[in-house]
Design a protein around this nucleic acid. Sequence first.
DNA 1: GCTTGACATAGTGTTAACTACAGATGTTAG
DNA 2: CTAACATCTGTAGTTAACACTATGTCAAGC
Lengths: 128, 128
Amino acid sequence: MNIAVVSKKFDLSQDTLRYYERVGMIPPVNRTPSGIRDYTEENCKWVELAKCMRSAGLPVEVMIEYLKLTQQGEETIPARRELLLEQREQLLAQKAAVESTLDRLNFKIERYEIAMETGVLSWDREEV
Amino acid sequence: MNIAVVSKKFDLSQDTLRYYERVGMIPPVNRTPSGIRDYTEENCKWVELAKCMRSAGLPVEVMIEYLKLTQQGEETIPARRELLLEQREQLLAQKAAVESTLDRLNFKIERYEIAMETGVLSWDREEV
DNA sequence: GCTTGACATAGTGTTAACTACAGATGTTAG
DNA sequence: CTAACATCTGTAGTTAACACTATGTCAAGC
């Protein structure tokens, strides 16, 4: 699978795919004898994982660290677990922040809709 | 309330508070005759809203736009609602991404914990 | 009244995560 | 074979959201 195909498959630019590889967020991709990238299924799985993590906002740096650990064999399993636990904490906090902001948005949207119907904009809790 | 107090109250740096004001993310803050910021309760509510939105990852640009609309009177209520609806969509997408990544993390953490007990690392779905 | 520390503005620096070339090399259709 | 196009490496540029620095003013304690 060449880079054009993978780019379309995961909706990531070719530049981004090369960037992920260069910084070590995914392992080195297979090459044809002439040096053209030829992604294996395994390569694709890493790309997909990277995209998933990034979409949730996990730093590139963290994926680089995770990849390093996986490449150092099974004795790094506890360290990998630790790393993932930390990131889970981050994500749970992130989720809470998103949910609380969604509450705020819903409240405001509702007030605005009432205002559009009745002509009266009333904040009945601490709001601006 | 001076900037030091507000900074502590919301755990935002003084630089950040000044930055938010400068770019128009919150309205201009009251000043003493000599030019020192003197935050009112209303000012604080804007700071708190700004912090909430930013914590969920909504762009500064969006808050600037929202503030502008609120300052143009009640005829912008439909536009404000539109803006908030868009951001709600963003946040729902963000929440979905976070949840799906949390699933991935939980799956991996579990495998690693099993591996640490049994010595066997088994991926039973498409994973790296 | 003088030092000291908080606050002011203005401008520059930083960091993360891409993104956009440029110039060279490889590939393919006719 | 050659034109046209894809991919390569390496470097430089961009953007968002602050953080830092320099320099100047003001207010409070002694």
